[in-house]
Amino acid sequence: MSMIQMCRIAKIYANGVPALYDIDLQIPAGEFAYITGSSGAGKSTLLRLLYCADRPTRGQILMGKRNITRLSARKIAFLRRQIGFVFQDFKLLQNRTVIENVALPLQVQGVSIKETRARAFELLRYVGLEYKVQRKPLELSGGEQQRVAIARAMIVRPKLLLADEPTGNLDYNLAQEIMEMFSAINKMGTTVLVATHDTEIMRLLPRRTIALENGHIISDTRPETDTDQLQETA
């Protein structure tokens, strides 16, 4: 079953700048895929269409069996509760503690405080930050902040995880650590879509790679053998 189906998608911004053209894409449930390309190729726009931050100018997007092309603000909010997000700039609330940041998506859904805290703590233990629950994000390193963002994304047990340049602000070792986490999350059944232009990362964990250039898909390749193990560094 497909997790995402994009049919003849085009996105032209209000100022006339074209970002995506005739995108036909199918991502099966449980897949791990990279969206790659140089800056301005349309990677982030494609992700923005998937979490309904933008509407396509043309075409249809199905998520599961649901057409998400024209949803109301309220329905978009409910759709996002099934999606986890990880961004290059972490997007953490600086005035709240680590555990408050992780708990936020469940608070929004009205889950009880007891359950929210238990699940937040469990995920912080999973990402190795159980000793820093009361810290503020700025007191953490970049890698730690990204792990908080991953824990926040995972707390809703998402069907889809979208990551936009998740390793962009991290050094190679931390990037490797984050990719290991994504791999583990994918193994739990979550579909993972990572937008990146970092070829090192893609070489580290080879997966289906959709390459964009000037808003067009120029290649869609799969590694000869998928492996759950990260490749040896050169």
């Binding site: 909010a77 759709l79 996002r80 509760r81 999606i83 997000f85 997007k91 998506p105 929004v108 809703v156």
Partner: peptide
């Protein structure tokens, strides 16, 4: 405004 953006991303309704 960052807080508002993050809240929308994690699925909070506009009224919430």
């Amino acid at each position: 405004r960052d807080e508002l953006e993050i809240m929308t991303l994690i699925g909070a309704t506009p009224m919430f």
